[in-house]
């Protein structure tokens, strides 16, 4: 870890209607790190990210980013404070071109930081460069996933919430994704990643949290997780 905690989540409680999804969940992401949130389907991974982003309103708990309280703010305020969100379903704007999708995400960079531009993003995701005039529903699923990430980066976030980016991607695309995300780290973007794919997570993340039934049950380094078969069997195997 380098630097203090960038994102601090404490005592998060979230409901969908009457069903409680998160129970007193706590986690921290340090400056510059990649933390992976692992867990089975329905464990609460996506809900955790949505609660941080303000897309679902937590019933209790707090989310602080660089010491600033985010709880209760509308999503656009949270995005403007430096948190970027890439949803699991990607939610690209199907009838807009690749370039226009990027435009929707564009915001000023914080002072002193070099802003992301389409051309810098095309360097990071080479596939997108040729597709810039293509409608976003006419590109492959992997390309859509990259577009979703690139679109969020256009807002120059300092922390990226990535919800299962490897889901449903072909192995060759997964390799490209790993390369791109590794590249991102070098640009100083911290990442909170939700994942079910241990192999993919192992190639990117340094630390892992395991979530089950809406609570963090295990936390440690990625190496420790890869070494600990018992933990994996208890919380991750299907």
């Amino acid at each position: 870890m380098n630097g203090g905690a960038m994102l601090e989540v404490e005592g998060l409680v979230t409901f969908y209607g009457r069903a409680q999804i998160l129970f007193d969940l706590a986690l921290e992401v340090a400056e510059g790190e990649v933390l992976v949130l692992m867990g089975r389907n329905g464990a609460g991974k996506s809900t955790t990210l949505k609660s941080i982003m303000g897309l679902v309103r937590p019933a209790a708990g707090s989310v602080r980013f660089r010491g600033r309280e985010l709880t209760g703010l509308p999503p656009f305020r949270i995005a403007r404070s430096g948190v970027g969100y890439v949803p699991e379903e990607r939610r690209i704007f199907a009838e807009l071109t690749v370039e226009e999708n990027l435009e929707v995400g564009r915001r000023e960079a914080p002072p002193g930081k070099e802003p992301w531009t389409p051309s810098r993003l095309y360097a990071l995701f080479p596939n997108l460069a040729e597709l810039r005039r293509r409608r976003a529903d006419r590109i492959s699923g992997g390309e859509q996933q990259m577009l979703a990430i690139a679109r969020t980066l256009m807002g120059n976030p300092e922390l990226l919430l990535l919800d299962e980016p490897s889901e449903g991607l072909a192995p060759v695309i997964v390799d490209q994704m790993v390369a791109a995300l590794t590249g991102l780290r070098q640009h100083g973007v911290s990442i909170l990643l939700s994942e079910q794919n241990l192999h993919f997570a192992g190639r990117i993340a340094e630390r892992a949290c395991i979530i089950e039934k809406g609570q963090i049950r295990w936390r440690g380094t990625m190496q420790a997780l890869l070494a600990d078969e018992e933990v994996r069997r208890a919380y991750l195997s299907v």
């Binding site: 999503p75 995005a79 403007r80 949803p87 939610r91 704007f93 009838e95 995400g105």
Partner: peptide, 16 residues
């Protein structure tokens, strides 16, 4: 146009 397709996502991208 983006908001016509998915206005929540537009908000999550920082648009008021």
């Amino acid at each position: 146009r983006a908001a016509t397709l998915d206005r929540e996502m537009v908000g999550a991208l920082g648009v008021n």
